[in-house]
Amino acid sequence: MATVAFLGLGVMGYPMAGHLEKQGHKVTVYNRTTAKAEAWAEEHEGGFAPSPREAAEGCDFVFSCVGNDDDLRSVCLGPEGAFAGMKEGAVFVDHTTVSAKVSRELAEAAAEAGIGYVDAPVSGGQAGAENGVLSVMCGGAEAHYAAVEPVMAAYGKTVKRLGEVGMGQTAKMCNQICIAGLVQGLSEALLLAEKSGLDGEALVDVISGGAAGSWQMVNRHKTMLAGQYEHGFAVDWMRKDLAICLEAGNEVGASLPVTALVDQFYKDVQTMGGGRWDTSSLLARLKAFS
Rank of each mutant, 00 (worst) to 15 (best):
A2Y: 14
L7Q: 09
G13Y: 11
A17T: 09
L20V: 04
E21H: 11
Q23T: 07
V27L: 06
N31L: 13
N31C: 11
A35K: 09
W40I: 12
P50C: 03
S51L: 07
C59H: 11
F61Q: 06
V62L: 03
V62S: 09
D70Q: 14
D70M: 09
C76D: 05
G81Q: 04
F83T: 03
A84K: 11
K87T: 04
T96G: 02
S99Y: 13
S103G: 07
L106T: 01
E108M: 00
A109H: 14
A113T: 00
G114I: 01
G114M: 00
Y117L: 07
Y117V: 03
V118R: 05
D119F: 06
D119R: 12
S123T: 13
G132I: 07
M137Y: 01
M137G: 03
G140P: 13
G140T: 07
E149P: 04
V151K: 01
M152Y: 03
T158R: 15
K160E: 11
K160L: 05
R161F: 05
L162V: 09
L162Y: 11
G168Q: 01
T170K: 07
C174K: 05
C174M: 09
N175I: 00
A180G: 07
L182M: 14
L182E: 10
V183F: 15
L186A: 07
S187W: 00
K195Y: 12
L198Q: 07
L198P: 08
D199H: 15
G200V: 03
A202G: 14
L203Q: 00
A211W: 15
G213V: 12
Q216V: 13
H221M: 03
M238T: 01
L242F: 11
A243C: 08
E247H: 14
S255N: 11
P257C: 04
A260S: 13
D263F: 15
Q264A: 05
M272G: 05
D278S: 04
S281P: 06
L282W: 15
L283K: 10
L286M: 12
